[in-house]
Design a protein around this nucleic acid. Sequence first.
DNA 1: GCAAAAGTGTTTCGTTTACACCCATGC
DNA 2: GCATGGGTGTAAACGAAACACTTTTGC
Lengths: 267, 267
Amino acid sequence: METQKYSYDYPRPAVTTDCVVFGFDGHDLKILLIERGIEPYKGAWAFPGGFLNMDETAEQCALRELKDETGLDLRYIKQVGAFSDVDRDPRTRVITIAFYALAKKSEVKGGDDAAKAQWFALNEVPRLAFDHDYILRRTMQKLREDIHFEPIGFGLLDEQFTIPELQRLYEAILGVQFDRRNFYKKILQTGILDEVEDDDRRYYGEHREMRSMDIGALFGSFASGSRPSYPNVHSDDETRRRKGTRFSFNKKRYDQFKEDNNFRLEF
Amino acid sequence: METQKYSYDYPRPAVTTDCVVFGFDGHDLKILLIERGIEPYKGAWAFPGGFLNMDETAEQCALRELKDETGLDLRYIKQVGAFSDVDRDPRTRVITIAFYALAKKSEVKGGDDAAKAQWFALNEVPRLAFDHDYILRRTMQKLREDIHFEPIGFGLLDEQFTIPELQRLYEAILGVQFDRRNFYKKILQTGILDEVEDDDRRYYGEHREMRSMDIGALFGSFASGSRPSYPNVHSDDETRRRKGTRFSFNKKRYDQFKEDNNFRLEF
DNA sequence: GCAAAAGTGTTTCGTTTACACCCATGC
DNA sequence: GCATGGGTGTAAACGAAACACTTTTGC
């Protein structure tokens, strides 16, 4: 190994990114962790992430590391913040920029490809490496705040979903229970959901790409420099007709609704 | 100048902090800028900030640089996020972690001590150096979001204030107008304000220190490692009796109110 | 056919909004 | 004394919350 190749007038911290990936299997909110293969914290679970390259933004770094380490090829992440405690990494001074990402139901199922990556339900998360326990707590806080401003629910569901699925998701994120009738009323009267006709269900596969672009436009504040690519589509059993009336998300009406309501969708 | 003293196996970006300081003079929301004395962007206005030392957190760095460059000795800042565009600094790869801070009315008045520091009303902000225009936009967004979760209004006012002052502040931050009667009703029925008795006003000076500690406890999520110090108290004319009924902020009732209302104080 | 989950309306209550006049202060 | 800003109550409209039964689906 060549050492000491890069020199500067003043000391510099190393900079990494970490990505908290949320997934929802229809009942529980989960996060994706990888088991560390090297010291420090060898054998402990941690968020996917790694060192920043000089020619990429933090967003690009987080997405690249996520793909390398878990096989997940997502496109939209949101920054949680920088974590800069002096001793957070025992090796050297490391500052990390944390993000969270939303994986769709189908992607959660396909996620175990990568060797050491594994989904954990939120209440079964083991003790994590570094300060990742703290980062997780902060990220959960941010997710709960952001859900009022961003269509997070729809980033975690596939194109078509039922209202009870959406309700369970909101309940999992916010940790509360809603009355089913009130939830139906509230979400339907916003007009942001389109009921999916029976005929459309058969063409479900062809709609996927559109759906991806919609979400991209929605998260306008997200990673600006990320290049387009397509998610790993797993046409599992559940893609076919399930019980319940299926809905899809109408971006145009969502934008309209946000403008009319001070950019809030409250539950 | 000795060069190249610090060497690493892999390239590292430089890391800086920037601090957007908000102040409120009773009518306009202002921010504190410094005129750059060196290239790049010599002569342009920018946020106070500078390079991170190896033995300090980003929060500590931002507070230190703020004091060095503007004379403001604040204690509570909140992180906006990391900005990592590859070309945001023409010299070398620089990542900045941005914060915002709240200065009290009295501190705004005393702020011009420092040579090149100057307060600008939000609608009179000049074009800024680096990507600071963008950082400012993002910071304003965050401030508008945070005002629902944190007692930001009270961080920008002195210990005693009138309800119309508080209303003007909310209006300045959110960019909307409220009905005066409804504002009174709403803020008073929360119970988080204590009316200041005439007698108490004379002891105002002695209450200042308590007030500082209250705010510290409130912003529990703020800089954890910051060391205690006391603000520059400017006993200007307005410390003495002004027109209008004066109120102070009751931390205990505020905490209670937040718990009862899902941590939101909506306007 | 039985259990579990989906789907639907109405009433009550509290919150938000709209609105006008008198009072105190400073010039 | 006049202009500016401070201080107060009520009624109407709206949105949130509470609440039970029928239908459909999966086994």
